[in-house]
């Protein structure tokens, strides 16, 4: 047991992670009518407002659940920005007419409903949520979430 904990600490130190990363895993979800596959780089371009449309021509609309630490963490990893920087970045874009602010939701039900009814919507949600009506986008696990899974199996 002690050895396993010691190895966990060593692994974390080597990989630049911390036990705080044992957060709830997240998933990227989209409208079920949108079957386009994207990778992590494409997701980043969408999250930072560089890629404004899907290949089909539908507008990318980002949907975010407020005050969810696991979503904030995932958003930071995927976008390369802190939560505050992300907000500031989008305020600059939106108030100069270069894009639409991400839609922020207080309830999971509202977020799911929004993505269900907007073809270009894309969101990040905690895996604990029931999102059966949405399409899960397979990006592959990244960064600290990957290590969280590995460490949990030690």
């Amino acid at each position: 047991m002690k050895l396993r904990n010691f190895l966990s600490v060593l692994a974390c130190a080597a990989l630049g992670c911390s036990f705080a990363s044992n957060a709830v895993a997240t998933e990227v979800v989209a409208n079920p009518r949108n079957d386009e596959q994207i990778d992590k780089e494409s997701l980043k371009l969408m999250l930072i407002g560089k890629e404004k449309f899907w290949s089909s021509g539908s507008e990318v609309v980002i949907a975010i659940l407020k005050s969810d630490p696991s979503v904030d963490d995932a958003l930071s990893r995927y976008s390369g920005m802190t939560t505050n920087k992300f907000k500031n970045h989008w305020q600059r874009i939106a108030f100069s007419g270069r894009g639409k602010m991400p839609k922020m939701f207080s309830s999971m039900e509202d977020l799911v409903k929004f993505i269900e009814t907007n073809e270009g919507a894309i969101g990040i949600v905690s895996s604990t949520n029931n999102v059966e009506t949405l399409r899960r986008i397979e990006l592959g696990l990244v960064g600290r979430s990957q290590f969280t899974v590995n460490l949990a199996s030690l």
Partner: peptide, 14 residues
């Protein structure tokens, strides 16, 4: 301000 996307890839911003 207002932003409207009436067509694929087309937005009107003011």
């Amino acid at each position: 301000n207002a932003s409207w996307t009436p067509k694929d890839r087309l937005t009107v911003n003011g």
